[in-house]
Design a protein around this nucleic acid. Structure first.
Lengths: 216, 216
DNA sequence: CACTATACGGAATGCCCATTCCGGTTGCAA
DNA sequence: TTGCAACCGGAATGGGCATTCCGTATAGTG
């Protein structure tokens, strides 16, 4: 991607304390990450390490030098996804209408999750996410604030809680993870709206006559 | 269960055409089925055949004589579940208020699915259910009728379709399949209500002030 | 009671992966 | 250009699990 030969070299060791990576190593690492993103996204968590290695154009051994375990590789990918979402959440906090901001965040999270089958599965199998990098990267806290705001303004059900979000996204992921391939596109967007409708404060008008957005 | 020694014996071959099962065989078959229901329910689809055999108190060989494949065993279990649901749906059609009847059916389906981890997983991974035994046992048709009624009376969103049901149940299953064990009870019932709220016709009053049924 | 078609148990087999190992390469500092 | 530590590739290893095989046991029949 970037041809600059000079990168993060600071003489001998990189920021943290590890000896800097050799150029080819760095390149391979990226390749692996990219391949993993691609393959996991398509095949889900049980995609094989060999497959990823092949896609990345390296040997399995190389994959393992960078990520000692399949799980580690997955963790790296997931952490990244969460961080990006956290950034997005941060922006959402600045919006005018908190309820709308929340909706947007959910829609976006849903979209991301839908496209990455591995992410869906990961979330499905780790409902204790709260303790994970989700919290680390602050996503949870940010979401909580956003929700509190939405509730204060009266847009959101009073009994909605942060845990509801990963749960709902997870549900969505499941729906599509299964459908993946068959049922092309399954317009999941419709389901997102149904969920949001479910979280909306009672009394507040629901969507205008549900968009005649009929499935299939 | 039933001690009557005389069962489906009609001399030499049973109804369909297969030679009748020997008494011990019939007994074992039941044991396997029961064990499978139990173990699959707890461990989900990747529970092992050996485990089931042990639980049933028989050898693996025996399991395989009755069900040539793990998949066959699962299919048998699932088909059974669907049939029971279909019966339930039939009853629902007789109720006064179609919307309420629908809600009850969903709540019941959800409960069943929640308790059977394998069922959740199965549904999650087979969104093309429509073609499966679901249809065979008529569940799909019955549900469709029920929904049509609910819509006619104005209780249900106009754009809701039959496919929404397995999808939503599946979503629910995913949520709890993951949570299974950790997050004891996760009161999924709350989620069912959120979903139903989402399917309710706009304008119709939502639940009375959301029951202060706070999670955890 | 004897006989045999059915059933049974569970060790053995075969396949699918993740992970490990090690002889051969290659950046890159001097 | 040289030397070697850091890297590579990919064959080999090991564990898990569905499925098969076969010698033994036993309903059910005459």
């Amino acid at each position: 991607m970037d041809t600059s030969t000079t990168a993060t070299i600071d003489g001998e060791r990189t920021a943290n304390g590890k000896p800097a990576l050799r150029a080819d190593a760095r390149r391979n690492r990226e390749a692996v990450l990219a391949a993993a993103r691609e393959r996991f996204g398509e095949c889900g968590l049980d995609c094989q390490m060999d497959d990823i290695a092949r896609t990345a154009g390296v040997g399995v051994g190389t994959v393992y030098r960078h990520f000692p375990t399949k799980e580690d590789l997955i963790a790296a990918l997931v952490a990244d996804r969460f961080e990006r979402l956290a950034e997005r959440a941060e922006q959402a906090l600045l919006e005018r209408d908190p309820w709308q901001a929340f909706c947007e965040l959910i829609r976006h999270s849903a979209a991301v999750t839908i496209r990455d089958r591995a992410l869906s599965e990961f979330i499905s199998w780790h409902p204790e996410l709260g303790q994970h990098e989700a919290v680390r990267s602050g996503l949870a806290d940010l979401t909580a604030q956003l929700m509190a705001n939405a509730q204060r303004v009266g847009g959101m059900r009073e009994d909605a809680v942060v845990e509801d979000v990963p749960t709902l996204i997870c549900a969505l992921g499941a729906v599509t993870a299964g459908a993946s391939g068959k049922m092309p596109e399954l317009n999941w967007e419709r389901y997102v709206e149904i969920m949001l409708d479910g979280l909306r404060a009672p009394g507040v008008n629901k969507l205008p006559p549900p968009r005649a957005h009929i499935p299939r």
